[in-house]
């Protein structure tokens, strides 16, 4: 039986792990990948101590920091079910079953889909959710980026170095992104911006050939790539009997406690205000400290 299991190894999960290692807790990290969404970000300018760093580089530093301790990390493993049984917690994954006294859920978020015609059909055939991964495949072609937040700005700006013309399609009348990024986008001659515009459908034959948008009538935009950057949804479906808000985020208090004693949650999977890397790190630290205190103030039935 473990003292602690951490699900997820993004900024929140890795920081929780560092704190647990320093407390010499007997713990395990179960995760599908290292870094979570942070890896996709190409340009981070608001993580204290770094005026500029890429997501991949920052995650590499997180990983090095965690791996200086002897830590058990089960990669490529996905939590499928969590139940509380008496005073311990049972986690079932695609590879096994684990028992722990405390749990930190730091499973983060996954990209949201548009739900328009053609999106499923052309997934991986021109429709992509990762500009960092697939961007280089669209050299010198025209592309559309869908969204108006930071990740859409980031994708559009990355693509200016690769693609031909970039159409940025935003449903709102102004960008939600940080002003600095939005300004960069507005000033880039390769990017054409459409506000208050909906994507009606994605069309093509074997690969994407264009999108249809609704902007003072219906209009076709010939593009080979469609980068969907309209936000994300929390990865919280593997646990059912826990309180969540309408957005499916796990509700936590300021000690990262959830509605189930012994189960804590941290970072973007929770209803914490503002989804930022630095906030997720702070939440991960808090979650481990709260779990540590929980362990020390309770007696557990025999193991």
């Amino acid at each position: 039986m473990y003292d602690l299991i951490i699900i997820g190894a993004g900024p929140a999960g890795i920081t929780a792990g560092i704190y647990a290692a320093r407390k010499k807790m007997n713990f395990l990290v179960i995760t599908e990948d290292i870094g979570g969404q942070a890896v996709w970000s190409s340009d981070i300018q608001n993580y204290t101590g770094y005026q500029f760093i890429s997501g991949a580089d920052l995650v590499e530093k997180f990983r090095e920091h965690l791996e200086q301790f002897k830590v058990n990390v089960n990669k490529n493993e996905k939590a499928e079910d969590v139940i509380k049984d008496g005073d311990h917690i049972i986690i079932r994954t695609n590879r096994g079953k684990y028992k722990t006294k405390t749990l930190i859920i730091a499973s983060g978020r996954t990209p949201k889909e548009m739900g328009v015609k053609g999106e499923q059909e052309f997934k991986n055939r021109g429709v992509t959710y990762c500009a960092t991964c697939d961007g280089p495949l669209f050299a010198d072609t025209d592309v559309a980026v869908i969204g108006g937040g930071n990740s859409a700005m980031d994708a559009a700006l990355q693509l200016t170095r690769i693609a031909g013309r970039i159409y940025l399609i935003d449903i709102a009348d102004k960008f939600q992104a940080d002003v600095v990024m939005a300004e960069k986008v507005k000033n880039d001659p390769k990017i054409k911006i459409f506000h208050k515009t909906r994507v009606k459908k994605i069309y093509g034959d074997k690969l994407v050939e264009g999108i249809q948008i609704e902007e003072e009538g219906i209009k076709d935009l010939p593009v080979q790539g469609v980068f969907v950057e309209i936000g994300s949804v929390p990865v919280s479906d593997f646990i059912e009997d826990i309180k969540k808000n309408k957005a499916n985020e796990i509700i936590v208090n300021c000690r990262c406690e959830t509605s189930i004693p012994g189960i804590f949650a941290a970072g973007d999977v929770t209803d914490v205000f503002s989804k930022q890397i630095i906030v997720a790190c702070g939440e991960g630290a808090k979650a481990t400290l709260a779990a540590f205190e929980y362990l020390n103030t309770r007696r557990f039935a025999d193991e």
């Binding site: 990948d33 290292i34 190409s42 991949a56 990762c130 960092t132 991964c133 280089p136």
Partner: peptide, 14 residues
């Protein structure tokens, strides 16, 4: 793969 793709890095490492 592409050099910037994190999934590709995971795959190579795997």
């Amino acid at each position: 793969t592409t050099s910037t793709c994190p999934h590709c890095a995971h795959l190579k490492e795997f």
